[in-house]
């Protein structure tokens, strides 16, 4: 509009809009369209061939059935536990690995490698390691006189055991993000603080922590979204069991899908997506606003 018609030109652009096209088609067809379709199908009883509109019945069921409510609670707990552990441990490991400790290269590699390994493989391995009597973990604890719990068999514990494995596998990513954040803090701040006579603890509290806030924001956001969406690890380790003790929304979606309750499964998707929306969007806004404030 701004460019006057006197030079109306039809030269092809160096930055052609059609470069968006192939990506846009694939993304719209296989991601956006189903996402929009889910809004409708979540309101139906659905067999893939025909669908009957039933209003909010699926959602009502989600908040009526105790095992579905538990799935919802579990999802939030899982996300909270994994992301807070990843923040704390990731920060701790990053501090350790940026100090002049020996064997830094080895330690970084060892902490990071699980990030690249198959989640299902990790899940199966830890299922074996966490076996209440034959598992290596409890046998190891027995050696030092502790009677280990039924990690995956105790309904109160199962979800958190899976969360621990999630942290084991994912803390390496949090650590490298924190390392990137820590090395970006200019040395000047520490030198200024040292001249002011700050103790190591004051250094951490007043310099490191505030200045690594962008990294914290990233770790929290990433691991929160990841935590809310987790399916593969739970499926590999407990399949939501014992009973429904470690079900999450994502595993409920799969179970309802397997059982042929497509409408309910899709409603689960919408619930998950709303859950992410109402938790993660304000969370990132909060984290980023604070950061702009500094």
């Amino acid at each position: 509009m701004a460019s006057a018609p006197t030079t109306a030109r039809s030269r092809p652009s160096t930055y052609p809009v059609w470069f968006f096209l192939p990506a846009a088609i694939i993304y719209s067809a296989l991601f956006l369209a189903p996402t929009f379709a889910s809004l409708y199908f979540s309101l139906t009883r659905w067999t893939l061939f025909n669908s009957v509109f039933i209003g909010f019945e699926n959602f009502a069921q989600f908040f009526r059935e105790p095992f579905l409510i538990q799935g919802l609670m579990n999802t939030v707990m899982y996300a909270v536990v994994t992301s807070s552990l990843k923040v704390v441990l990731g920060m701790g490991l990053a501090l350790l690995l940026t100090s002049n400790i020996i064997a830094r290269g080895y330690l970084r590699s060892v902490v990071f490698f699980p990030v690249l390994v198959s989640t299902v493989g990790v899940g199966i391995t830890f299922t074996v390691l966490m076996h209440p009597t034959q598992g290596m973990i409890n046998q190891g604890l027995a050696l030092i006189g502790i009677k280990g719990p039924g990690w995956l068999t105790d309904p109160r514990l199962a979800l958190y055991s899976v969360a621990l494995v999630d942290v084991w596998k994912g803390v390496g990513l949090a650590t490298v993000i924190y390392i990137a954040g820590l090395v970006a803090i200019p040395r000047d701040y520490y030198e200024a603080a040292r001249i002011d006579g700050a103790t190591a603890w004051q250094n951490f509290w007043h310099v490191t922590l505030p200045l690594s806030r962008p990294a914290t924001a990233t770790v929290i956001t990433l691991s929160f979204i990841g935590g809310l969406r987790t399916f593969d690890l739970i499926w590999a380790m407990t399949k939501g069991g014992p009973g429904f003790a470690s079900d999450t929304v994502a595993s409920v979606i799969y179970k309802q899908y397997q059982a042929g309750f497509y409408g309910l499964s899709t409603a689960g998707n919408v619930v998950l997506f709303v859950l992410i929306g109402i938790i993660v969007v304000p969370l990132t806004m909060f984290l980023n606003r604070k950061q702009g404030h500094e």
Binding site: L30, P34, A250, Y257, F273, I276, G277
Partner: peptide, 13 residues
């Protein structure tokens, strides 16, 4: 990056 894919509608499509 955030939204989980809607599984069954994707299968249907």
């Amino acid at each position: 990056l955030m939204i989980p894919p809607a599984v069954v509608p994707t299968i249907w499509l």
